[in-house]
Design a protein around this nucleic acid. Structure first.
Lengths: 218, 218
DNA sequence: GCGATTATGGAGTGTCAACTCCAATCTTGC
DNA sequence: GCAAGATTGGAGTTGACACTCCATAATCGC
């Protein structure tokens, strides 16, 4: 509840609940290994179907270590949300920071579709799937998810705003709404792609919003 | 695996796994009560967090009854998917069957937004949330989810097609793609609305695709 | 009405999950 | 180098959960 606004990538577990005030280099590495293992398992099977013991085994640590770094499963899941948000931004970063041309938007769409193709359409959105599972169940997780989506949406919003300022889009184009619609199309497209096991829904959902953005060209 | 194509609303549990070949009137009522209770709990808390015992208690039946009508939890969840799809179609039915004018599309959007408003933005899509949880985990559930989405998408697709045939939309408008984009916007909008607890994402996501449909007016 | 089938009650079982405890070992600041 | 504190191992506990079993009561076809 205290550090949602700053970008806080890794120091998420350091709140009043987490016992260790200072982490040694080895400790940080162990903690990171736990979070990475948990993130992978949650991405593959969801929060509820990911057992602490699975994480423990995958990360190669003992139970006491896990509870040394995280007060409980909920706190670990919050660390996973932060980790996955970092991962999304890192992977999309070069493109995401320059979504200020039609060519860049199309490249971004191609990248997203190609990624799902590689995964054979399994797995949805790394944070969207968690949101579906936890948004109504864990208020703290919800807050972190809101922050995660915001970190994702911001560069999209800013890219479209630059297009408008530069004169590529009409002065009265609602770029904030278009950015939000793009994110929603991505989420919905991913869900349908995951369910139907074909990339068409994702591609078509994104293309439809991109077409709408193009109608706003100046 | 055998009855995805016909509309099969209620006779879903009657496959080789379900012991009872014939259900008496009372039996059907009990089975329906179980499915309804399960659907409500799953909608509120997800599949994994819904215990058989919770369903049992909520429906007012004993454990043996539950396993008399359903081979296991997976089969019950498949019945829930069918039940929720029926529910979605029933609620939206009057509108859904006549989505063949801009006015009707807007009325439908208003209804969807109002519904989430009533729910204070809690709960996502009755089948979308299940899809996020089960699509990669249970192949049979995935098949039923695909069928469910198709039953939902079909009337949207057909409404837009009628608009094109009637000349409201251009002859080269890709109404199938627009219908799919609308469903994706709905799913993504619901997820973001559920997470952020405001209806704006849902409304904006739908409005953006509606605007794109309007650009295809003849 | 009567035999066969279906519907119900409720106690019981085995497994697995999250989490705890305590003792032992490294690391670090000084 | 030496305490203080950080890090680790692994067995143990507690509860929840999906599912089973067997006996009894209702219902249906004829």
């Amino acid at each position: 509840m205290e550090c949602q606004l700053q970008s806080c990538a890794y120091d998420h577990g350091v709140r009043e609940t987490a016992p260790p005030r200072r982490l040694t280099a080895k400790g940080r590495a162990t903690r990171a290994r736990i979070v990475a293992a948990a993130a992978e398992l949650v991405f593959a099977h969801g929060v509820a179907r990911t057992g602490i013991d699975d994480v423990r085994r995958e990360a190669g640590v003992s139970a006491s270590q896990l509870y040394h770094y995280f007060a409980d499963k909920d706190e670990l899941m919050r660390a996973v949300i932060a980790h996955q948000t970092d991962g999304i931004l890192e992977v999309q970063r070069p493109l995401l920071d320059h979504l200020d041309s039609f060519a860049a938007l199309e490249q971004w769409r191609d990248m997203l579709v190609a990624l799902q193709e590689e995964r054979h359409c399994t797995g949805g959105c790394p944070i969207g799937s968690i949101a579906a599972e936890l948004a109504d169940e864990d208020p703290e997780a919800r807050a972190d998810l809101v922050a995660g989506f915001e970190r994702w949406e911001a560069p999209i919003r800013e890219g479209l705003a630059r297009m408008r300022e530069r004169g590529d889009l009409r002065a009265d184009a609602d770029t904030d709404a278009l950015a939000l619609a793009l994110l929603a199309a991505l989420q919905g497209g991913l869900l349908l792609t995951q369910t139907r096991r074909v990339t068409a829904p994702l591609r078509i959902a994104l293309d439809t919003v991109l077409a709408q953005i193009r109608t706003q060209a100046a």
